[in-house]
């Protein structure tokens, strides 16, 4: 990336967003929604609790062997601390149970799935992140680096990202009302189409007054105000999501 040489940096052109932008060779820009210290802290706590539970079960079972069980128990502890994250990250595409609960996953800096080498590197360097005590170095590194990377991430070139659907919760399960489709009077950009569809999907979450206020803002497109504007926007949204039947007709 040639951020320094470009006349305008991304942060000056685009409004701020906590994402890492990756440009593919095809010129497509992908956005990775990097995850900050708190979700990662809670994911680590969940993983720690799972491991602790497993250790206690192992300790109870191995205590039946009296002194002989101490060696195997140490082995279980060692494997739990060092192999647990690597195994989950490699075989479950960067998701440990804790990360899954928080909707996070580990990926390479370019968004590709993390491989064995990178995963081992970032997890072996937990030792450095832990110093001097309780991941203090890791917390500082996450707070101070651009993409919330701890030292292990910096060395392995990985980032932790929000993996859950980018579709916001607000429009999940909400549909564009089934009204007769009306083609928009002018061609629209993709992001403008998304706004209109989003308005229609989330219409039910707003009081009618707020919906009319919002629709008034689009009067440049609808040429109408108040409830008439809302109706026209709904028609456009219906058309934009692909419905093509005329009013009064049934499904084709």
């Amino acid at each position: 990336m040639f951020r320094g040489k470009a006349p305008l940096t991304e942060s000056e052109v685009l409004p701020f967003d906590a994402v890492r932008r990756v440009e593919t060779p095809e010129g497509v820009t992908l956005t990775l929604r990097v995850a900050g210290p708190l979700p990662r802290l809670y994911a680590a706590l969940v993983d720690g609790a799972i491991r602790g539970f497993a250790y206690s079960i192992a300790a109870v079972v191995l205590s039946l062997l009296h002194d002989l069980g101490q060696g195997p128990l140490l082995l279980v502890l060692f494997l739990g601390e060092w192999a647990y994250p690597v195994l989950f990250e490699v075989f479950r595409r960067g998701v440990t149970p804790g990360k899954s609960l928080l909707g996070l996953k580990v990926v390479n800096g370019d968004g590709t799935p993390v491989n064995l080498t990178a995963s081992m590197l970032r997890n072996l360097l937990r030792f450095a992140d832990f110093l001097p005590f309780g991941y203090a170095a890791g917390v500082l590194s996450i707070l101070l680096t651009d993409d919330f990377q701890r030292l292990g991430d910096l060395v392995a070139g990985t980032v932790v990202v929000h993996a859950d659907s980018p579709r916001p919760r607000a429009s999940r399960g909400l549909r564009v009302p089934d009204v007769p489709p009306v083609a928009p009077p002018v061609p629209l950009h993709a992001h403008e189409q998304r706004v209109i569809v989003g308005f229609a999907e989330r219409l039910a979450t707003w009081p009618p007054e707020r919906a009319r206020e919002l629709a008034d803002l689009a009067s440049g497109l609808t040429g109408a105000a108040g409830q008439e504007g809302v109706t026209r926007l709904l028609g456009h949204a219906s058309w934009l999501v692909g419905r093509r039947r005329k009013a009064g007709e049934g499904e084709r």
Binding site: L14, P15, F16, A18, A35, P37, L38, F148, D164
Partner: peptide, 24 residues
């Protein structure tokens, strides 16, 4: 005139957006 990308986010993503704003 808002200087940040406005879109509905998942709650934790919103928190991380705030953390990013502090750095910005």
């Amino acid at each position: 005139r808002i200087a940040a990308e406005v879109r509905p986010r998942a709650p934790w993503e919103a928190v991380d957006h705030g953390f990013g704003l502090t750095r910005r």
